[in-house]
Design a protein around this nucleic acid. Sequence first.
DNA 1: CTGCATCCATAACGATACTG
DNA 2: CAGTATCGTTATGGATGCAG
Lengths: 121, 121
Amino acid sequence: MKPDPHHSTAACGRVGDLLAKIGSKWTVIVVRALRDRPMRFSELKRAIQDISQKMLTSTLRDLERDGFVTRTVTPTIPPRVDYCLTDLGKDLLVPLDALGDWAVANQHRVDAARARATEAA
Amino acid sequence: MKPDPHHSTAACGRVGDLLAKIGSKWTVIVVRALRDRPMRFSELKRAIQDISQKMLTSTLRDLERDGFVTRTVTPTIPPRVDYCLTDLGKDLLVPLDALGDWAVANQHRVDAARARATEAA
DNA sequence: CTGCATCCATAACGATACTG
DNA sequence: CAGTATCGTTATGGATGCAG
């Protein structure tokens, strides 16, 4: 039998922390947006569309702080800033994609359950 | 070349929605707490410790609504309510564990990045 | 172009008290 | 035991305006 480290309170706490972070609604979107190429701030802003500039900025700062993206400033005029996934960021993409795939694949099941719950009420 | 559905805005949106849901900090903890056996309300409360009763209740209601857990009432005195993962809930555990494992395995890398960021400031 | 600061609305959360 | 109701606090997200 495995040691099964998932059961420990400590492990659960860490999972909670990380999920709280990536669950901040925009983190995942941004990381996934950067999946195959670096992007400039305004590119991201345009790509994500309904993110406010404030949220994009703070999301990127958090991601940078946690080592998921790099921020490269080119001090031209006008200034240019590129964001790129680090190795850690690319690593994170793996379990993130698994979860993302699951979400896409099972969304209908959740929808069905919610529909049932709603009409039952 | 694949259609690569992950890039679409729609897919990202759904991922965001679902992550926002499971990222609500307690959802994951509760789902993982139920991983191998059904538990009563008070068992969960005791197992999770620093969750407030209100949060546990509303988290469970959300999970039930979305079809991740079942709620079984035994109308004895005192009343007894058991919560159990559905098949959908158990399915969710798979990508969730992947992410959890990643979190545990890479926590130190994130910590290191944060430490670097902090002292750089 | 990039990003910070400010203000504001809302939602999340927690503590407490009370009901079946 | 399980759950609802209420209140107050904090966190989150958006809009706008300003600055390098």
